[in-house]
Structure formats: structure tokens, C-alpha cells
Amino acid sequence: MNTIVCVKQVPDPEIPPAKFKIDPETKKVIPPAGVPPVISVYDERAVEAACRLKDKHKGKITVISMGSGKASDVIKHTISMGADEGFLLEDQAFENLDSFGTAYVLAKAIQKIGGYDLVLCGRQAADWGAGQVGSILAEILGIPVVTLACDIQAADKKFRVKRTVKDGFEVLEAPMPSLVTVSSEIGLPRLPGGVGLMLARKKQIPVWKAQDIGAEASQLDKANAHTEITGLSVPTRKTECEMVTGGTPGEAGVNLAEKISKLI
């Protein structure tokens, strides 16, 4: 079974929000220097999902990432986890694309790779959190999409996908090929083993430019973007602490429950 996983590099989510700066001119986020970007957490779980399927059914995992040169570290990380191959989509024309533009570039790369049974994405990116690319990508590729997966099983040329919903989960069936976006409920990603780390060290990550994947300039034109950033600000966080008391621990518990019930 051949799987293609789309991953994104994001600023380390561990960075405290106050450390970010915003450039008002370009409307860009400037993360603090010296903290290397990491793989988006949900995307790493998508890689884990792919590795679990590979453990069971063999096949090949190809990882693609659109981003700058440092994103090749993120791809190497997925190779150390168990991916077989990775491509970095890097071009000036790819910078500042919105979800539609990103999905277009990814779709072009996926079409170039071809021969896939499954495309996996994280449920959303850990930085912008739009959660759009997966669905748009499926639309462009013309394949079904199942979002928020917490378990993926493959049998008889079909996928059985367990999907988290508000009050539990539902199980859907999808044909091959399909696109699935993976949620964190799938479980912790594996720690790269010795062999994986060894392979990743030596692996060359080819870079594909717009012309390599046949991406048309018109599609990447900013004028065609569906979204526009009008403002950007660092959220201010306020914490207030209130001690809930009661005559007995039981009473305190009741008072706490009342407080919480008013908040939800």
C-alpha cells in the first residue's frame, strides 16, 4: 500500500506566545531566533498513522512538504520514523500561499508522484490552524476525504476510518484511494529507532520547484488567493485565580461544579 503524507514545518509550539513578534508591514509572524522549527504535531501523527499501516501491510511512504530549506529537517525526521522517501517543494512562488494555493501545489506534487492508495494530512496545522488544506486537496485530486481520523484500517481495497466527533466517534468506509486527515487521538508518534536515524542521516531530500511539478504561475498568483490577512496580533492571555471553598470537601466540590457548569 502506498501512502503520501503531507507535512508542514511550524514554529515550535513550545515557544511562549509573548516571544513572538509581528511585522506590521508585511503582516508576518517573526518567531524568536534560535528556536528551530518543528514538524506540525498533527502531521507527525499522520506520519505515525502511515507507519502503522506500513507495519501491517508493507508498501511505501512518501512525504512531501512545502516550505523553505529547513523543512528538509522535518522530512528527514519523518524518514527516521519510517517514511521511505521525501520531497521538498520549495520555490519563491510558493511563499505566502493561502490554503487553496497550498493545496494546489501539494496536489501537483502528488499527481507527479502518482500510484498512491492513501493521502494523509494532519487535521490542521499547528501554527495557523485553518484545517482547510486536506479537504481542498482531496477536492482537487478528485478523491473522497475523511477528516479527524483516530484510527485507520485497510482491508479489501477499502479503508475503515474511525473518526472523532463531538459525542464519541463514527466509523466510515472509504474506497482506495482516499484522503484522510489525522487527529491527535490516534496516539503518540513513535520515537525514531536506530535504523531510521541512520537512514535519515544519509538521505538526500530532492527539491522540486514550480516547474518540476508543473504548477502554473497563474494559480500561484497572489491575486487569485481566496483569503487575505488584514491584521495580526499576539494574543494577550489573562489568568485569574479564584479559590473555590466550602465547609466540607464535599461542599467545595459542589461549589466547584456549579462554577464550571456556568462556564460551559
Partner: peptide
């Protein structure tokens, strides 16, 4: 170990609100 690998130090998560 994951923090060591991706962040170069073992302290991540709630314990550490400082940068290097």
C-alpha cells in the same frame, strides 16, 4: 527523548517557559 531530538534539550512542556 522526542524533545531531545526535535528541540535539542529535554525540558519542554509546562516546565520550561524560557528560551535557551
Amino acid at each position: 527523548l522526542r524533545n531531545m531530538q526535535s528541540r535539542g534539550h529535554p525540558w519542554a512542556g509546562v516546565q520550561s517557559l524560557r528560551l535557551r
